[in-house]
Simulated scan of single mutants.
Amino acid sequence: MQITLSDVRVDGRREPMLEPVDLAWSTGECVLVAGEPGHGHTALALVATGRLDPSAGEVRIVPAHAPSRRGGQPARGTAASLRAVTAVVDVPGVSEPDDALTVADVVAEGLALAGRRSLRRDVTRWLAEHSLTADRGRRLDQVPGVVRTALLAALAAEDPDVRFLVLTLPDRHGGEPSGWWEVAQSLAGAGYGVLVQCTRASARDLGADLPPARGGSLHEPPVVALRARPAPPPAPPVAAAPVRTDDDPQEDR
């Protein structure tokens, strides 16, 4: 499955919220886009997931079973179909949770939004499964940035219909970029399509060949800085069946 943006633009009341941009990313892939804060990140996250209509251009979702271009163009995805298979994670002013909430509160809310049971015992079980039991009572603004990103992304992935995740500016919470980039790659390895938005400085820290933003480039839309398709995690070993011998007492029963 793939999401494609073709010459997409979002206009604001006084100036463009997002300059024309082309972008594509698929399930099993993580794509890093870099741009300066305040110049298109929020608009890109929302328009790419069907939560904001573009002023120009086209956003499409291409199902995995869709024919290739040689066999005909796939149908254009509707905003509703995009919203159904995507989640926006920690978008400033849109989907970021209240920093005063405890981790347990955030988990309960996230499970409920994903259509999962969110009773106290469900929250306790989820925290244990994600090695976050010790953080249960901490305020969200007290946890390290990478933990915050991993927590919110994992909750978004609890929705069984979600196939694409957008992580918006995880670098604004501090920490090494390699931490949240590793989170993104692990999600892609699990089969999700992951779009990560960051500053140009963070992209350079991850090895992207991007010059510093100067002059007109300060207002350019986010650009693709890195693209990776991590290998899926190895399958757990299958336990071998016990080998019976002639002396096995079970044979005599």
Rank of each mutant, 00 (worst) to 15 (best):
R139W: 13
Q197D: 12
G110E: 03
R76N: 03
W181L: 13
A80I: 11
V123C: 07
V107M: 03
E158I: 01
T168K: 03
G77Q: 02
A112N: 03
V183K: 06
E129I: 01
S178F: 00
R70G: 11
P177G: 12
A84G: 00
L155F: 02
S68V: 02
A188E: 08
A104P: 02
T199L: 13
L132P: 12
A201I: 08
P74S: 06
E158N: 14
G189S: 06
A150C: 01
A203C: 07
A87S: 15
R83Q: 06
G145T: 15
A156N: 02
R69L: 10
L151N: 12
A153Y: 09
V107S: 02
D141C: 11
V107K: 02
R117K: 06
D161Q: 15
A108F: 10
F164G: 09
R200F: 01
A104I: 03
P74M: 13
V146C: 09
R69Q: 06
R136I: 02
T78G: 08
E182R: 11
V85E: 07
A150Y: 06
S118G: 03
A184M: 05
V162W: 08
E109M: 12
D105I: 03
L119C: 08
A75N: 09
V91P: 03
T168H: 06
A154F: 00
P97C: 10
P97D: 05
R138V: 07
D159G: 01
